[in-house]
Design a protein around this nucleic acid. Sequence first.
DNA 1: AGTATGAATGTGATCGATAACATCTCTCTT
DNA 2: AAGAGAGATGTTATCGATCACATTCATACT
Lengths: 351, 351
Amino acid sequence: MEVTGHMPNQDAPRSRSASIWDVARVAGVSQQTVSRVINGKARVSEETRVKVLQVIEEMGYRPNKLARALAGGPVRSVTVLTSDTSLYGAAATLRGMEEAARTAGFSVGISVLEPGSGQRDVAERLNRPGEAVMVIAFDAAGVRALGALPPDVPVAAAVERRPDIETKNPWQVWLDDRAAAAHATRYLLSLGHPTVHYLAIPSSTSELPQRTQGWMDALRAAERPVPEPLHGGWSPRSGYLAVRDLVADPSVTAILCGNDDLALGVMRAAREAGRDIPGDLSVVGFDDSPPAAYLNPSLTTVRLDFQGLGRACFNLLHRRLDPHTAPAVPAWSEPELIVRESSGPAPRSTG
Amino acid sequence: MEVTGHMPNQDAPRSRSASIWDVARVAGVSQQTVSRVINGKARVSEETRVKVLQVIEEMGYRPNKLARALAGGPVRSVTVLTSDTSLYGAAATLRGMEEAARTAGFSVGISVLEPGSGQRDVAERLNRPGEAVMVIAFDAAGVRALGALPPDVPVAAAVERRPDIETKNPWQVWLDDRAAAAHATRYLLSLGHPTVHYLAIPSSTSELPQRTQGWMDALRAAERPVPEPLHGGWSPRSGYLAVRDLVADPSVTAILCGNDDLALGVMRAAREAGRDIPGDLSVVGFDDSPPAAYLNPSLTTVRLDFQGLGRACFNLLHRRLDPHTAPAVPAWSEPELIVRESSGPAPRSTG
DNA sequence: AGTATGAATGTGATCGATAACATCTCTCTT
DNA sequence: AAGAGAGATGTTATCGATCACATTCATACT
């Protein structure tokens, strides 16, 4: 059999690993046939198929994913844009995304956003035009990146806020933070606390964050005073600093925190102020991060299914990429209040 | 100017984004010249250079990284192989790697290893032959993956164990767990504890893990009894379960834990057994994970510079890839014992 | 028997870049 | 003034895959 045309140099020293051409040569077929076998697309005779697969096995051939993508093959990679991966929420979401993507045969790239990343910067991170992207947009940097993405990139995002009916973007997933915060607040009120204070995490937008809104919703519905929300960062330290003064005030009996790390800081501040938890002060967190159940006292918190959210986000993207073959987007769990030791009835002396 | 040869169809509808050819056409030069400008390699007249850069700016052209890599351009991507990213050590190391890689202009892929990943499986994850790889090999899955990597891939790894002089592999970084564990053990002995118990994390090899060895070293050097080490997993829960019986024994006054999560479980078990920390029992962790300083009591632990280790690992890889231009590998911090509230003098009644 | 049909397979172009080599135009040397 | 050398730039091959189209051959239908 004569092979001509685009066939590359066969006589050059083979330092690099086997390509589709090498397999074709050994198997005595054309590279196109090898390609067909690999992708299982067009019809290939059983005999040829077996032969080619055998040669592939023998030579340890692996298709070069770069070349495949370049040639317009099916997209098999995603880049995740996220900011701080040390935060539990982002990390767990990322884990869900990675797991789902890997299961579906996608390779995943990760690119961490700096607080100051600009538009240019974001475009720079994509490997090629048309690269599929997922964005973890729980904070300002993520939201900005999502906005800075060129319009033609297929993207799915995990966001803080449920989209308006108006601006409804079908390629987003979210957790119902607002309802969850309201639920946690109602729970505290039901224990007899006159009101609930709120220590917020930084917002992803200029609007009032969902968790803050939910908290206000519940207080207003119960016709309770709405204290000025406090503003923390993401770390235990920032929570500690934010409430050092507040916890000294004995009329403060319940604090809802934007995440578990803040709650950790709050509990330490309370301890230092000599206030017993939950005797004098109830503390409730958000996230149900791994240590929460083992803290002293163990932390009452809202469990958020970040991992499920991440999985769903990938599946959404997958459906966007190939609407016909991709599996349905799985549901993720609703937020759930996990009651532990850090919350209890309001102290008698107050009220 | 006539352009012939490999020039692609110019008249086709432009749905895809600009390529080097489009830039060349608009700027009135050949694509090779554009390539030269982008890579700043060969000499190009200042006039042409400015013109081309201007056109690139106007068209919003971004080079396709896939095509570049395929054509044998400089390698600008790394894949990180890691197992469970929910563990603090692995997550922090990954963060250090990502940060260093991004700073150096590399894009980073991440691939999470399942406990059962086989050799075939690992090869499958690489995007192309010659793909650069980093492995976080703190556990068995990571070590196995490191071993399963084809010999020709440029790899650098963060490992548990300092390599023997014999098998010295220059492309590895590690933390001196052994010395750190010995140091922590000596510290506890110096507080008057008759001996120190050890709750181990799972080992990455069949040998005795470094932390276990360091602990034994110190006990033996001090001529103290060496209790049978306990075996936990990675989670607080596994620590809790592992020591539930042990902590009831009042003669046990000091426990060193393989990581902070285990320590968290141990502290809860101790609380439930009615033992005061640090009054009756001293607990020391390993890692200095973020919550450690805010626990109740705050946790005495060995701070490990995982992030610095990750950075160093990337830099090592970078030097391996281009020995001449890559910056020197930065040092990372030595393990350091951080003394907090969870450890104190041995109780009087004992000893 | 002649032709339509379709399965199996091969050929050449293409994706978007880089590498190697070729060409052209100056300037400097002798 | 001719040739050498160097700078600026163009041309072709190539990386490793896929796609669109062409070709071959056997079977079925009229």
